[in-house]
């Protein structure tokens, strides 16, 4: 750049255009590729966010999102003061904490055990079998639960009757049994799948370390404790913390399918309640549903950001 030789307007514009072309022109095809996904992203992910205002309005379908009158925090107040508030909050937290604790250790035990097995065929077989349930749809899983735990015709009922000679109590409509059925069927379904991530962590153990330990006379069990376990521990911590960030997210699908009128005291959670007050057969209150949904989303967001900050501090493994 030689001093301030005044360039004509045209020359400057031409230079700017050339620079612009160099920066974007070469890559125009890449932008063209991105066009469709970005349009999709705005329509299906960001456009609904304008609908969040429903939570602060008295939404009438006829008047639409923008035309309905504002009511401030009235919908939130209605939720916080209703008797359902503590119930759904408590149930959501209870179910997710319970599944967090119950589903955490077993995949680790499975991975550690699989890693010990020396017969490749046996290892393959166990893996093959334990991954299967992951591919079964939630409807079929719930269908299986309802069939097998039916107190009259299910396996549970017939075994109970065979052992005690009495009709089995109906546990499917017992509120106190709901969390156990929900959580343990989930553990059954995901234990194998959950072990994959730990197995991949274990494959990173340097075989030389095992050799050295054998030379030092360490038993296999000892090697699991001092070599394998410390290897999966960081992964395990991260999984635990990440799941903790999802503590307010209990999927709608399975809970809704397992609900019946008799177990609602333990099975009504935030997402099913949102559905019922708004879109369900007896619902219709869109504003209340949107408010509860927003309340849940914001808490989730805060939790995940918190968790991310914690993992970042712990060892740089951030979610993004």
């Amino acid at each position: 750049m030689t001093a301030a030789t005044p360039l004509s307007k045209e020359a400057r514009r031409a230079r700017r255009l050339a620079r612009f072309k160099k920066q974007y022109g070469n890559n125009w095809q890449l932008y063209l590729m991105l066009l469709l996904p970005v349009i999709w992203l705005f329509i299906f992910c960001y456009l609904p966010m304008t609908g969040i205002q429903i939570a602060f309005k008295d939404f009438k379908i006829r008047q639409g999102i923008w035309g309905s009158p504002w009511v401030g925090f009235e919908n939130f107040e209605r939720f916080f003061t209703s008797y359902q508030f503590t119930r759904v909050l408590k149930n959501t937290l209870l179910i997710s904490l319970y599944s967090l604790v119950a589903s955490f250790p077993l995949p680790i035990v499975l991975a550690l055990s699989l890693n010990v097995v020396r017969k490749a065929a046996y290892k393959k077989f166990v893996q093959m079998v334990t991954y299967i349930p992951h591919f079964i749809s939630v409807i079929v899983i719930v269908g299986m639960i309802l069939q097998m735990f039916n107190s009259r015709i299910g396996l549970y009922g017939t075994v109970y009757t065979a052992l005690t000679g009495q009709q089995a109590p109906d546990i499917l409509s017992k509120a106190s049994a709901f969390p156990h059925l929900y959580v343990w069927s989930g553990v059954w379904q995901e234990v194998g799948w959950g072990s994959i991530i730990y197995l991949s962590a274990l494959s990173a153990v340097d075989p030389a370390l095992h050799e050295a330990a054998i030379v030092d006379g360490a038993s296999r069990f000892k090697r699991v404790l001092v070599l394998d376990l410390p290897t999966v521990l960081p992964t395990a911590t991260i999984m635990l913390i990440m799941n903790a960030g999802r503590i307010m997210t209990v999927g709608f699908e399975k809970v809704y399918l397992m609900q019946n009128d008799l177990n609602l005291t333990t099975s009504e959670i935030i997402s099913t309640y949102v559905y019922k007050v708004s879109l369900g057969p007896t619902g219709g209150d869109f504003s209340l549903g949107a408010a509860i949904g927003l309340f849940n989303s914001v808490i989730n967001l805060i939790l995940i950001l918190l968790v991310n900050a914690v993992t970042k501090r712990m060892g740089g493994t951030s979610l993004w």
Binding site: Y275, L279, G289, G293, S297, L305
Partner: peptide
């Protein structure tokens, strides 16, 4: 991935 508008805004859309 970390924030969703929720069931109702999506339905209305």
């Amino acid at each position: 991935m970390i924030f969703n508008a929720g069931m109702i805004p999506n339905y209305v859309l």
